[in-house]
Design a protein around this nucleic acid. Structure first.
Lengths: 125, 125
DNA sequence: CTGAAAGCTCACATGAATGTCAGAGGAAAG
DNA sequence: CTTTCCTCTGACATTCATGTGAGCTTTCAG
């Protein structure tokens, strides 16, 4: 498929797809006229890239990790494995943090709702 | 305390503290000479701001939410409550997404480690 | 064949939080 | 007092993923 189709299938802009390629995250074959062509696999790959971005990995880090997706049969470097472990831990910590923040939001909402109830009961405040 | 102390107590740069004030997230009293002074409460407030930033709220949204922290006794606006609920939901979805990504990372690591084991058992690959 | 739609490259713009620098005026301690 | 550190404002720089537009070529449907 060409880049436009990949874009609409993944919901990622054409611009971003070219950027991913520039960063070495996504490969394409080129037609004689220079147009990018992708296999169906690219859809999944783009989704994964987005997922990793959303998890806070930089494109540099994503580039380090993706080879392990492509060819786990090759000798995965210590560095890559370590990087994955490191990112996993960072991600875990981040998730825990977000959960705490969500709890804080919940409590904030509860407090404010409670005050409203009180206000409704005795409108003087 | 002055801005430098607040910075070192919170681990947030002086530059960022001034930025928070500019965005209406943090208030200070000014000395005759114009220097910012903060009460101890500011430490907690800055921590909360950072927490909300980390949860993906923009400073605009943080500014919308913070008044509910300051004075839940006032009539909290519908808009603010709705905004909080909305951010809470967004955050929940984001957390779920991150958990999935973490799982994906875990599996990726497992697969790569397994391949290594195999390699070690029969070095031909 | 023609025109619309889609691709290409290159380059500049954006947004958000923060870094950094310059020039000037306070603050605190020797 | 003088030195050293802190703070002030203002402005420009940075990072990163993405938007946007120009100018040109390719593809495809009619």
């Amino acid at each position: 498929m060409r880049i436009g189709e990949l874009a609409s299938r993944t919901g990622v802009s054409v611009r971003s797809l070219r950027y991913y390629e520039e960063q070495g995250l996504l490969v394409s074959t080129r037609s004689a006229s220079g147009q990018r062509h992708y296999t169906d696999d690219a859809v999944e790959r783009v989704t994964l890239i987005q997922r990793l971005y959303a998890a806070g990995l930089s494109s540099r880090t994503v580039a380090e990790v993706l080879p392990c997706v492509d060819s786990p049969s090759e000798d995965t470097s210590d560095a890559a494995l370590e990087r994955m472990a490191q990112e996993r831990d960072r991600l875990s910590a981040h998730i825990a943090d977000l959960v705490r923040t969500r709890d804080a939001l919940d409590e904030l909402m509860a407090v404010n709702r409670a005050h409203r109830e009180k206000l409704r009961a005795s409108p003087v405040g």
